[in-house]
Write a protein that binds this DNA or RNA. Sequence first.
DNA 1: GCTTGACCTCAAGCTTGCTTGAGGAATTAG
DNA 2: CTAATTCCTCAAGCAAGCTTGAGGTCAAGC
Lengths: 155, 155
Amino acid sequence: MKMPRRGSLSATKQALSVGDVARRSGVAVSTLHFYETKGLIQSWRNAGNQRRYTRDVLRRVAVIKIAQRTGVPLTEIREALAALPDSRTPTAADWRRLSQRWRVALDTRIAHLTQLRDQLDGCIGCGCLSLSQCPLRNPGDVLGGDGEGAQRLER
Amino acid sequence: MKMPRRGSLSATKQALSVGDVARRSGVAVSTLHFYETKGLIQSWRNAGNQRRYTRDVLRRVAVIKIAQRTGVPLTEIREALAALPDSRTPTAADWRRLSQRWRVALDTRIAHLTQLRDQLDGCIGCGCLSLSQCPLRNPGDVLGGDGEGAQRLER
DNA sequence: GCTTGACCTCAAGCTTGCTTGAGGAATTAG
DNA sequence: CTAATTCCTCAAGCAAGCTTGAGGTCAAGC
């Protein structure tokens, strides 16, 4: 959390060290290592076996973090990024496709939570929670009806 | 998932075995064991050291599951239930208080996701994701501004 | 009275998403 | 050149919320 002593770039203009990326993207170095083992980002090594990144990685990390905020698990993010031709860094067009896809999931999540809230409103004070009658008790319409994908996302 | 051979009740009318509770509440036996170790439900033992429950446990489990659906972690559920005088099973009035409290959290969650969705809409296609400009990149207004409670719930 | 099936108690494992630590090598500021 | 950083690679740990397994007891049906 201290200010870097050197400029935020390594000597070479293009290549970013793992520390550079951490500072600029706001994620921990260990997280970048972790993302790499999971195939979400890539790097090459310099003569001394240290990781070097292109600037692209910053955008990739940005996309990862936004997708996570919408509730998308890392494996799906990895797949979505890997599905890009050449696994390249998302362009504006790629980003449009990705974000629209994730937006649908986000909408679904919001819809489920809203439905739950409405049921909660309807039931507050009734105290019944009866298995056959109470909509809150019988999540079939929310969980069963929508398949288990919903469960995974909502839980 | 097979039909029980005997009626769904143990011989004694009042006491439910762990299997009875599992069948009636829809959670696994192991989950009931787990909830008990976490102090969410209680039981006594019969002569043969087997768990016995009153019918109350069904309502408690119902409340637990609903609270979980709204995103409340088990520790908070435990505290909320424990805060009831005598740790008794929630009455209609208790349920009203609990559900209203959890409703607020649910509202917050929905609000955050909705805000995120709107930002996503605003940004779809722009592809900028610039650190200083893009609202999606700078989650300060959502995460930082609302404290880390939001992060925990949303992640 | 014997065979199932239901229960019991630990202990360990699983998933997701990372963090922490140990032990050592490379880089860089002065 | 040297000391302070930074970085490296595993391995292990953590939190939540359960599940699975081993080894053994209890209860119920025929």
